[in-house]
Design a protein around this nucleic acid. Structure first.
Lengths: 156, 156
DNA sequence: TAGAGTTAGACAATGTTGTTGTCCATATAG
DNA sequence: CTATATGGACAACAACATTGTCTAACTCTA
């Protein structure tokens, strides 16, 4: 029988797993025509969704200020993933919507994540991977999209 | 029988798990006399270790510039977790060492992580938690301390 | 329908955290 | 002894987020 590892190993393993997946995602995205995308952008693009959002709305969804959200939209617009159109329902507001490049990148990301998951499934066995996902879901109830990672983590 | 979740769920679960643990750690640290510690600091304190390090050395361990490492040491010195003494073996160098408060905070963190792990162990069953740790270790070979999370993740 | 309060987004100022570059003192190799 | 590399301090700069302010537009209510 094996002994339990020290408690601090668990968070490190989780972070390492996240990081391995995301690094491999972005390596592949870069190889397939999306070299400018950064980890945050995936969260932002997901948060924009098919219907489009205003900057203030995006900020609320992501837990950052509307100014910060607006800068993300600016960047993604410059990179061609987002377009901003006047909101027909509110003259103050501009709707940020995904361009076809934006939806393409999301679809490609989904395919890549699917393949990465299937690699893990091969390495670990399908049942154990599913158990891992179920167990993590059990101990992280109601955790949503955490975009504020930079500020959350840092603090020199 | 259940169906597999989409691939993008896996990284989100891993990040959520990491975040839940670290948030609870720092909530408890704050309650027990360490309100100023941030998630990065745990990594820095671990990297300093019992023997002490120079700023340049710390930067290499953490994958950041020596200036950035020096600023972390400055902060931790101001908070009372680190002291800087001249290196007897090198007159250019200053050794950063943990103060007793620094080692105390590490020991407390270890105890808290131990308790958090045991909570997960109760919730999931000891075998499944151990399987989770082993499986993650299997798919994240050789991943060390990633301190560069802010810059890595961000990019407005 | 008029006025009060709220909300969107632009702009400016600021703070934090990281970077590179330069500098001097010290160490080390030839 | 000299040439080179390294440690740490200082300065300039860049990236990213924050708050505050301002104007325009929406919405609720009297």
């Amino acid at each position: 029988m094996s002994t339990d590892p020290p408690g601090f190993v668990l968070p490190l393993r989780l972070l390492a797993g996240f990081r391995v997946l995301v690094d491999r995602l972005h390596a592949e995205l870069a190889e397939h025509g999306h070299p400018g995308l950064r980890p945050v952008h995936g969260f932002v693009l997901q948060a924009i969704g098919p219907g489009g959002v205003s900057a203030a709305d995006l900020g609320r969804r992501l837990g950052v200020s509307k100014q910060a959200a607006g800068k993300h939209l600016e960047t993604l617009e410059r990179l061609g993933y987002v377009e901003r159109v006047p909101d027909p329902a509110d003259a103050r507001s501009k709707l940020a919507r995904l361009t076809s490049r934006g939806t393409d990148s999301l679809a490609l990301s989904a395919r890549i994540f699917e393949r990465l998951r299937s690699e893990w499934s091969t390495a670990l066995g399908p049942d154990r991977l599913r158990a891992l996902e179920e167990d993590l879901a059990k101990v992280t109830p109601g955790v949503l999209l955490p975009l504020d990672v930079p500020g959350w983590f840092g603090g020199a």
